[in-house]
């Protein structure tokens, strides 16, 4: 279970809070969507969650372990797929995945099984031993995803994961998210593709100008407000306040 308590982040050169008092809880087995307009604070929240950015107030806990007090332990249970990929381009895909597996201390047996499974799933068999430098954007995305899943993390964090993926791979990724949650893990992802969020997420949070606007259950939204799509809700909540 992920608990974000009163997360506040202010960049050093700015007077404005990029994230202001954000509090969320993500249950085990849940796919949680994180939505907001550009510059709302989504990426900042994700970077605080993954330990990239320090934050001034609040705390983040994964299964009761505080990110502030035990960052390494928390990071061991998070798999992160960023929106921009920075790779060591002289590595092959296989070397990168093995590096990630080594850092996350994945056993050799698990490493081999998961490596084979994900490489086949994403149809990277022919390219896996090529240098990452030669990969297309979609292939780099796939390698990043495999690297984030090789240690079977309790929390899988993805920032705009569908960008650059072909339809088959996008479908496979969505199925993977569902499968990951079915095993008792959680997925936290941000996306601008509201149709996808509506289809696969259990709950969504909408953030605007650093503040949490609403958290809603997708199924409840569909049952209680059949006249309102997620897109309409999103636009009404973020558009009026702009």
């Amino acid at each position: 279970m992920l608990v974000i308590e009163n997360l506040t982040k202010k960049y050093s050169k700015s007077d404005v809070k990029a994230v202001d008092g954000l509090s969320l809880e993500i249950e085990n087995g849940e796919i949680f969507g994180f939505l907001g307009p550009n510059g709302a604070g989504k990426s900042t929240t994700i970077k605080c969650l993954t330990g990239i950015l320090p934050f001034s107030e609040g705390d983040i806990k994964l299964d009761g372990i505080s990110l502030l007090k035990n960052p390494i332990e928390v990071k061991m249970n998070i798999g992160y797929v960023p929106d921009t990929h920075v790779f060591y381009e002289r590595l092959t895909g296989a070397e990168y995945i093995n590096f990630m597996a080594g850092i996350y201390k994945v056993s050799e047996a698990d490493r081999k099984n998961r490596f084979d499974k994900y490489v086949s799933m994403f149809r990277l068999n022919d390219a896996i031993n090529d240098y990452i430098k030669s990969y297309s954007h979609g292939m780099r995305q796939k390698i990043s995803i495999i690297g984030a899943l090789i240690h079977n993390p309790k929390l899988w964090v993805l920032d705009e994961p569908l960008t650059g993926l072909d339809p088959q791979s996008a479908f496979d990724l969505k199925e993977l998210m569902k499968q990951h949650c079915a095993e008792g893990n959680s997925v936290f992802f941000s996306s601008h593709v509201l149709e996808v969020v509506e289809k696969i997420c259990d709950r969504v949070a909408i953030i605007n100008k650093g503040k949490l606007v609403t958290v809603c259950n997708i199924n409840e939204l569909k049952e209680k407000r059949k006249d309102l799509s997620l897109e309409e809700l999103f636009l009404s909540l973020t558009g009026e306040s702009q």
Partner: peptide
């Protein structure tokens, strides 16, 4: 370095 963010997200001190 451009890999700062990436390395910071890993479980490494």
């Amino acid at each position: 370095s451009k890999d700062s963010e990436f390395l910071q997200s890993l479980p490494l001190k």
